[in-house]
Design a protein around this nucleic acid. Sequence first.
RNA 1: GGUCUCGUAGCUCAGUUGGAUAGAGCAACAGCCUUCUAAGCUGUGGGUCUUUGGUUCGAAUCCAAACGGGAUCACCA
Length: 627
Amino acid sequence: MNIKQWLADTLKTSISELYSNNEPLTLSIQETNKEFEGDFTLVCFPLTKLSRKKPFETAQEIGEFIKQKESNIENFNVVNGFLNISLTFEFWVNYFLTFTPNVTNTDNSKIHVMVEYSSPNTNKPLHLGHIRNNLLGASVAKVMSAAGYHVTKVNLVNDRGIHICKSMLAWQKAGKNETPASTGIKGDHLVGNYYVAFDKLLKAEANPLIEAALVKDYSKFNAEAVLKISAIVDRIELAKDDEKKEAALGELKMLINNQTPIMNEAQEMLRKWENGDTEVVNLWKTMNGWVYAGFEETYKKMGVTFDRFYYESNTYVLGKNIVEEGLNKGVLFKKDDNSVWIDLTADGLDQKLLLRGDGTSVYMTQDIGTAVLRNEELHCSKYVYVVGNEQDYHFKVLSLILQKLGYDWAKGIYHLSYGMVDLPTGKMKSREGTVVDADDLMELVVEEAKKKSEELGKNEDFTEAEKAVLYEQVGMAALKYFILKVDPKKRMIFNPSESIDINGNTGPFIQYAHTRIKSLIKKADGKVPQTFESSTLPNETTHRSLVRLLSQNQDIIEEAAKEYSPALVANHTYELAKSFNQFYHDFPILQEEDKNLAAFRLQLIEKIGATLRYNMDLLGIELPERM
RNA sequence: GGUCUCGUAGCUCAGUUGGAUAGAGCAACAGCCUUCUAAGCUGUGGGUCUUUGGUUCGAAUCCAAACGGGAUCACCA
């Protein structure tokens, strides 16, 4: 039962009766602020039009009317135009007896939702940004399942493209047949090293060319390139401000990079790969295999899983075919160099490339193919893509293109656009070596948990294996909670050197509250009395507010599903743990002499414990029995 | 430059279908372990909710403008 909804319905009926109103009413009902007495507050200012009285008098009048009419309403008080309503303690206790943390009565069960997250490139290891992506995606999927949706978790592996060829080429050139086994390096890191190595090789070739171009020595370039390059160099000279200069310089670098022999080799490799060249495909399979093994380890440590994997190497051909169809339908057009485009200028966007002049596909081509394939296989009514907000434009375009190609279901595409994770020094940049590696970070937080735990020395009787599990649980809880408590849409700042707090609004704080509950229940020999006499219980605000917090839990989960925001669950769970800790401090539970009251308290903390556990599971956080 | 997005305490964040005196945690300071786990609890200080204007009985929340961050406008993914 949803208490707020029940109260709203009751109030609507009563107010309509009181004022002989036949119009539909929307009431503003909120939880009563702490400094006032009451459970819920009806804001009466908007109702003065109905009552034709002053706010205070209106509230007073409504209060008297409903108190008389509804036996579950114990009392009311009026402050200005605010009507504070208290429900009877008996009502709360009866509610409490039926309480469960999980969402009941859902009508979402027939709605099939896909949640795509992680979606790594197979040319380098995962970093801090991916951690937010993975934790967010995994949690959103859980929250939506909890809210009753039928959820399919999908990982779209970005296993093809020029970036993969770069790692492969560098390995061929400088790899000396190194393998994860021969070096002891985790596969994704090894391949990542070669991606960096490619960049070095590229710079070695490109830098002299760039320097030459800047002093207008064009002898190394062909006639076509000279035209373009000289035009840019002129722009650099004429640039009025640093920003424009910088932009033009970037353009020059890109252009010259593409002129280098090694870049041509990479492009040639991509063409060979798309043509199914055995040698290239085999190398690709081998190196991807290393990366997958590495990712699997990282996923396991993060605790994220998938129902289904899609590989862009399997979908780009479909994407190309769809582009061909679009060309025939006249939705797309071809330029002189044979490249294929869509014109979205009428929709306020730009022209977008869908196929290169040499026939190879780009990011958008693959995404079109993937989207269509998934719709054929999954038939979801909603497709949630968990992807960073730097790709807002891409997804706007993707959805629009699909709709223009005649796919109506593309309206169900939702880009869950999350903010970037920044370091205190600013953005992570691979060029400056400030990228925080996912594996390193997880190791760091677990190490930090170990340090703290050893300082406290509460777990010296644990076996080494038990200790390892505990440190892992606490460290990962700190990391996961830290990331998930922040509104996904907002960019956030993460400081790895300060590591992660374990006091206050943190994962370990909630874990700790839970272990206290576990400990009490254990001390009661696991026996939680199932009944108590509710009429003799004292009406006390701490108990009451705990039951109120519990009563909000289902609503919070549904809201979190609707908003795609695990942060709502995280923050509510913290509120609950905090209130429990106060309660624990102020009231005896096992020590309580009134056995009836003790029974109620024990049952109360058991339900709080179950709720903490349920909610933390939605965040992918494990709770230790002891810590 | 166009488009999008964000701006709340020293720091990290809540709070936004418009409601009461804007909340937490961290950091600082002061207390609380002979009693169910002190990874806890209590208290103190800390705010022009970037600014200005508008709408309203009422604005951190809605609208407009300005200022300041960020993203994007790639034949990278």
